[in-house]
Design a protein around this nucleic acid. Structure first.
Lengths: 128, 128
DNA sequence: GCAATAGGGGATCAATTTATCCCTATATGA
DNA sequence: TCATATAGGGATAAATTGATCCCCTATTGC
């Protein structure tokens, strides 16, 4: 396992939320779990760009941060279900706000992001 | 400059907002600029844990994403002021929601984050 | 016996992000 | 003359994150 070499900043609230919400897929995991996709295989189907491994790792962190709980059914083949904790549920309106903002500005966002990528491509093609 | 080697996911809204808001200090930069701390040196004093360099880099990205504008006054010593664009201003309520959530749950957040750090410390001391 | 299903995780490599170090410029005040 | 303030940025190192690869469990169905 990876071991932190620096201590995180925990000064203000925004540091704290960063600690639990950073991670490429975490917000989406919370969102989909909230929508009722509770099993690992379902989540993986919802987020095919992430590997199974990474989802496991991020789910475990969400669990350690008490945003979700994991229920393991002792059956074969194994069955696992994740649910939001009460604490995790309080995050849903916040995530909804994020989602709503980006939906409202989707076009513009795509625009500025793509523009930035294309321009850095030009830079590198000038070099070569 | 760093050159991307993979294309980012831009499927859903949450991918998009991630592209512009990821970056350790970006949310805070937007917040402080909104509060009226517009000059680089002021921002640096507000965020002493970040190096001058990193703030510059992240400010430039925010500018490329059209969330802020940069005004350079042709004076010596140089004077620069950042402001939110209209687009950037639409993000403020969202950031406020993030901040409010983490303020409301500050104690619990500190708790779970520290618990996680301490337990991984224990792990590593068992190994050695 | 072999594949498929459903879940997990160590080891390691690649990509990305953040931090450090060092260098630029000009005017002011001690 | 030298430090200070103000702003910028290249080169590179370190830290962190994410992706890949491979291996494990046990049962059902062919």
């Amino acid at each position: 396992m990876y071991e932190r070499k620096t201590t995180p900043n925990l000064n203000c609230g925004l540091d704290l939320i960063g600690e639990v919400l950073y991670g490429k897929w975490k917000i989406r995991l919370l969102w989909f779990i909230n929508e009722g996709h509770q099993r690992p295989s379902e989540l993986q189907r919802k987020i095919p760009d992430a590997s199974r491994r990474v989802l496991n790792v991020q789910l475990k962190e969400l669990e350690e941060h008490e945003l979700i709980t994991k229920k393991i059914y002792p059956v074969v083949p194994p069955k696992v279900e994740y649910s939001l904790t009460e604490f995790g549920k309080t995050l849903i309106p916040v995530i909804a706000a994020l989602g709503q903002w980006s939906d409202e500005h989707e076009k513009r966002l795509r625009n500025v992001i793509l523009k930035q990528i294309v321009s850095s491509d030009l830079d590198s093609s000038l070099i070569s």
